[in-house]
Simulated assay, not measured.
Amino acid sequence: MNLVFYLLAIGIGIITGGMTSLIGASGVMIIVPILTMFFKVGVHAAIGTSLFVDVIASLTVSYSYYKNGNIDLKSGVWIALTSVIGAQLGASFANKMEEGKLSSSFGIFLVIGGLSMFYNSFKGKNDSLDTVRGFIHFKREWQKILAVLITGLGIGILSGLFGAGGGVMVLLALIILMSFPLHKAIGTSTLIMAITAFSSTVGYAARGNISLILGSFLAGGAVLGGILGSRYANKVNERTLQSAVGICFMAMGIVMTVIAIIK
């Protein structure tokens, strides 16, 4: 692998870190398709490497939110707890799946994620969340905790299966289930994403499915992208960004699914 290869990896990392800081999303949706389609990395190793990068990028971004007082891990600890358990289950399931099936499953997951982002970009964000809140009522505190525990478990399983740290899903859980203010929800969800991704990373590393050299270059770029993105996050038109990223995700997911079917 030559210098251009590693410079490209750094560039991809910068984009990944920037996306995490701007919309709180996992970098898996960028890294896995690119590593599998253009770098010829196996899908298991691509997911494991993306999780490793997710940990670094998420910690970088969450630190910037922490400096502004926008992290409350104490309230989100229940999600973090069960997401770690779910991540190990997901990583175990993924290791037993064939490359083709895992690749096509990830492609479908990517398309769904892209559709969701694209759809939400055309809706009033606060209105849609208020509508959802209207259908969720907890008469007892234990009911609220149980709902959060189940949510965390599901997020963790998805993280282990597809390499997604679950940032967007955690964000919605904190806003809808725990009534977090938006900025504090973003900061807390990003830190929880780092914890969940770390748990999944351990599972993939134990099975030898992480490229540490390539991951280090990607992570280096992600740190730079995360710092720059956090600095300018509030200046970006959120709806325009969501639409563009959603379209890209859908395109990459369709390509991955088609390639998996052809193989």
Rank of each mutant, 00 (worst) to 15 (best):
L146E: 03
A206T: 10
M29K: 07
T240W: 11
N209V: 04
F93Y: 12
G166A: 10
L212W: 15
I259H: 09
I145T: 13
I157C: 07
G13N: 06
T240F: 12
N70I: 00
T16V: 15
G253H: 07
M193A: 14
V111T: 05
K144S: 14
L89W: 05
L158V: 13
F162A: 12
V41P: 04
L59W: 02
L81H: 01
S243Y: 03
S199N: 07
R140T: 15
S62A: 15
A219I: 05
S230L: 00
S128N: 08
V53Y: 01
L81M: 12
V132G: 00
K101Y: 08
H44A: 05
G163D: 06
G152H: 06
F38L: 15
L241V: 07
L241K: 02
V255F: 09
G225P: 02
L158F: 15
G86Y: 09
L3T: 11
S83I: 10
T188D: 06
I247Y: 02
F122V: 00
S103Y: 05
Y63K: 10
V61F: 03
G42D: 14
A57Y: 03
N237M: 06
A251K: 04
M1T: 14
N237P: 12
H44S: 06
L172K: 01
S230C: 03
V236N: 10
N70W: 07
M250H: 02
L7G: 14
L22H: 07
Y204I: 11
L8P: 00
S189Q: 08
T196K: 03
H183Y: 13
I85R: 01
A46S: 15
T201L: 02
T16K: 04
G246C: 11
V77P: 00
Q143F: 05
A80W: 01
G152R: 07
K125G: 12
T188G: 04
W142F: 11
E98L: 02
A87R: 07
F217N: 08
I34C: 10
G17S: 08
L177N: 11
T16S: 15
Y204W: 02
I56K: 05
K74Q: 02
N209E: 13
W78M: 08
I254G: 02
Q143T: 13
D54F: 06
A222V: 08
T49D: 09
G163P: 08
G167T: 05
G152E: 04
L174M: 11
E98G: 10
M29D: 02
G100L: 07
I175F: 02
S26P: 09
K123C: 10
A46D: 09
K123I: 08
F52E: 01
L22C: 06
S230M: 04
L73S: 05
F217C: 10
E238L: 14
V132Q: 09
F38C: 06
F118M: 14
K139A: 13
V258A: 12
N126V: 13
S103A: 12
